[in-house]
Amino acid sequence: MNIFRFAGDMMHLLSVVVLLLKIHKMKSCAGISLKTQELYALVFICRYLDIFTGFISLYNTIMKIVFLASAFSILWYMRSHKVVRQTYDKDQDTFRHYFLILACMVLALLVHHKFTFREVMWTFSIYLEAVAILPQLVMLQRTRNIDNLTGNYVFFLGTYRGLYMLNWVYRYLTEVHYHHRWLTWISGFIQTALYADFFYYYVKSWRNNEKLQLPA
């Protein structure tokens, strides 16, 4: 495992920790899109179908369990916790995320590397992950006061796939048996590019020492 992949994973982990910290300590999920969180839970379920059958390393297995467990605990907090669920801003979270699921499933059935159940579900999870942030980005744009934890959560999440792209380039150059996975590369690129606007305003607010606010 190279430094880019590891740094990417740590960014991903950090984003989840920051979000759970906000929810657990502040007892608030204000500004967080439940729809994005539902999509991530679905992404992890479909991608980690091999969690008990395909062992790669202890690191991989532990990380998979952590991502699955954290995704479901976030969903539980936002839907069922008696204090946290009242801070969920349902009226701002209006993205039709079922259309994303449907579109990604159709695309996965049409464009994949291999037509097997495992592979199509894996491909679906790659496509869905690329666009899962959209409901959250729409919600951020509607939120006048984005708190630091929410801003950092989205920033870490955006950085993670960007680092994965460096990891793919590195593996492509250094590993003889590493196959060119154009499907993942394109999805990863789109996933990172969706954050471009957010990154711009995040860095700007950080440099000017101002509160983060996205233009409507």
Binding site: R5, D9, I56, H113, Y164, N167, H177, H179, R181, T184
Partner: peptide
């Protein structure tokens, strides 16, 4: 192994 190389990532 053709299909496994990209599934070693998270």
């Amino acid at each position: 192994n053709e299909s496994d190389d990209s599934h070693d990532e998270l």
